[in-house]
């Protein structure tokens, strides 16, 4: 875990996959750690099964732009392999792409998945995670997005307590069990890759 002052993160996926929930957990945890945050989201039409991207900026100083400049992102965190590649231009030369491995096929021309994975693996730094499997291990296949939170969190200076508090804030009204599964999923994500 390094100690930088600023983290720019592109979160991507398909509308309905829970990209905004990932953003919500990370940003709440980051605020608890004293970061200033900016989180640009997508609402409206593209949420209907289209490509969705959120820009998330954490910083120890002022953030002026809601959007991350191309070439500035430390991480791409994606719910889905094809969508992870859509934003590679945003990655810093030494930035890292993290994606769940399972494709979301709601378009007729989805490429061969191996082609997509090859392109991802050809990047300087990438991790492909079987998030669905790990989510099931954690207690529910619906916790895929929390596995990804875990995979990203281990790269950021976020304490476990902050993540735990963020998850409790967001999910406690859905019951203890949901909180527990989501926390398990974060641990699974941290241990993966």
């Amino acid at each position: 875990m390094n100690k930088k002052n600023t983290y720019d993160i592109i979160l991507s996926g398909v509308g309905g996959q829970g990209v905004l929930t990932v953003a919500a957990v990370i940003s709440r945890a980051a605020i608890k750690e004293g970061f200033t945050i900016r989180q640009s989201e997508v609402h409206g039409m593209s949420q209907r099964g289209g490509a969705v991207v959120a820009h998330m900026r954490l910083s120890r100083s002022e953030i002026v732009s809601d959007l991350i400049p191309k070439g500035n992102a430390d991480f791409i965190l994606s719910m889905e392999p094809l969508e992870s590649l859509r934003y590679v231009e945003y990655l810093k030369p030494d930035g890292k792409l993290i994606t769940a491995s399972k494709p979301y096929m709601n378009i007729p021309d989805y490429p061969e998945i191996q082609e997509i994975l090859d392109k991802i693996q050809a990047l300087p730094h990438s991790t492909v995670i079987d998030a669905e499997h790990l989510a099931k291990e954690a207690g529910s296949s619906r916790a895929v997005n929390m596995v990804l939170v875990g995979a990203l969190a281990k790269e950021l200076p976020l304490q476990d307590e902050s993540l735990k508090a963020a998850v409790e804030d967001l999910f406690s009204r859905k019951g203890e069990r949901v909180v527990e599964i989501n926390l398990n999923a974060i641990v699974q994500g941290k241990n993966a890759g």
Binding site: V14, G15, G16, M45, S46, Q47, R48, G49, G50, A51, P69, K70, G71, N72, L82, E83, L85, R86, V88, E89, Y90, L91, K92, P93, G95, N106, I107, D109, Y110, P111, K119, I120, A122, L123, P124
Partner: peptide
Amino acid sequence: AKRASQKFSDETLPGRPPQLC
């Protein structure tokens, strides 16, 4: 000029437009 960033080979990806649920 543009900032330095990453690229992948053959940068063509199919679009994913929104659609009815």
